[in-house]
Structure formats: structure tokens, C-alpha cells
């Protein structure tokens, strides 16, 4: 039997620390490297019973990228890495004055989210402007692939010899 002292010696702690650091790194990489889709949307939208009309014109820049101009019923998707992002909106008010909205910071929780320009312009807090966007999977046109067949073929030795490496 190893005594407690032998088990809990300095090496043990060094190893433990290494494992903790690696797990922390993994968590960091997960958050930092995860790509989520953000749809920036200029549609009339209803949130909590209030309707927000689409802006007639808006210029939007996500994370300081090149700004995109929006007309009503427009929707553009951005692949974004990481969780926290910013959005800067410039819009026309009723008397055609360009108004720059202060930069809004928001967090992405879902794989695919939708952020509404009119709601942001109306000054709703960012969390309320974001909804999860559920992608409708396109109906599979091709016949369903069958891995079982691939395995059987592979075991029979086919597809061996023409492999590209």
C-alpha cells in the first residue's frame, strides 16, 4: 500500500495542475473556436406582444466588419467565432436623419440565432432581440447513405487499392 504521503506528493499536484490547465484550455478553445451563425434580420417582428416595424433603411456592422446596407425584409447571415459580439447600427428616422445607435454587445447562446434590427433600434435590451433560429433541414434529395454497406465492402477488400493518400 502506498501511504497517503506518497500519493499526495508534489508530482501528483503537478500532474493534477496540468490536467486542470488542459481542461481549462479545452473549455476556452470550445468557446473561442465555436462558430455560430447569426442572422441579422430586418423584418417586422413581434416581441412580447409589441410589434416593431422593419426599418426602411439601415446600415449594420457586426464586430466592426464591413457594414452592410439593409432594406426591409432583408436577412443576412454571418458565421461568427466565439460567444461575445458587437453590433453597430445606423438607421434613418422618420425625417431621414441618419442616427447612429451606440454599439450593442451581445452573447450568442445557440448554434444559430437571429437578431432583429427593428427591436434593437427600439432600444430593447440585446437579450430580447435575439432568438434561436431553428434551421429546417432540407429534405435529403440523395438516397440515404448506408455505412453498413461501406463496411461490408471494405472488409471484402474493395476500395482498397485506389485510395488517395
Amino acid at each position: 500500500m502506498k501511504s497517503a504521503k506518497e500519493i499526495f506528493d508534489i508530482r501528483f499536484f503537478v500532474r493534477l495542475a496540468c490536467i486542470v490547465v488542459i481542461i481549462a484550455l479545452a473549455v476556452f478553445l470550445y468557446n473561442f473556436g465555436k462558430e455560430r451563425t447569426l442572422l441579422v434580420d430586418n423584418w417586422t417582428i413581434e416581441i412580447n406582444g409589441t410589434s416593431y416595424r422593419a426599418e426602411d433603411w439601415a446600415k449594420v456592422s457586426v464586430d466592426g466588419q464591413k457594414a452592410q446596407e439593409y432594406s426591409p425584409r432583408m436577412r443576412i447571415s454571418f458565421p461568427l467565432r466565439g460567444r461575445t459580439h458587437t453590433i453597430a447600427i445606423t438607421y434613418d428616422d422618420k425625417s431621414f436623419n441618419e442616427i447612429e445607435l451606440p454599439v450593442v454587445e451581445f452573447k450568442l447562446e445557440h448554434d444559430s440565432s437571429l437578431i432583429s434590427i427593428p427591436a434593437l433600434v427600439a432600444g430593447l435590451p440585446a437579450e430580447e432581440c435575439i432568438q434561436e433560429f431553428i434551421v429546417q433541414p432540407a429534405p435529403e434529395a440523395a438516397a440515404e447513405e448506408n455505412p453498413e454497406e461501406a463496411i461490408a465492402e471494405q472488409d471484402a477488400g474493395f476500395g482498397d487499392m485506389t485510395m488517395e493518400i
Partner: peptide
């Protein structure tokens, strides 16, 4: 998980 690029 859709982790992209070098972090992935």
C-alpha cells in the same frame, strides 16, 4: 460542435 480553424 462546429469549432473552426486552429482552435478546432
Amino acid at each position: 460542435w462546429n469549432i473552426v480553424s486552429i482552435p478546432g
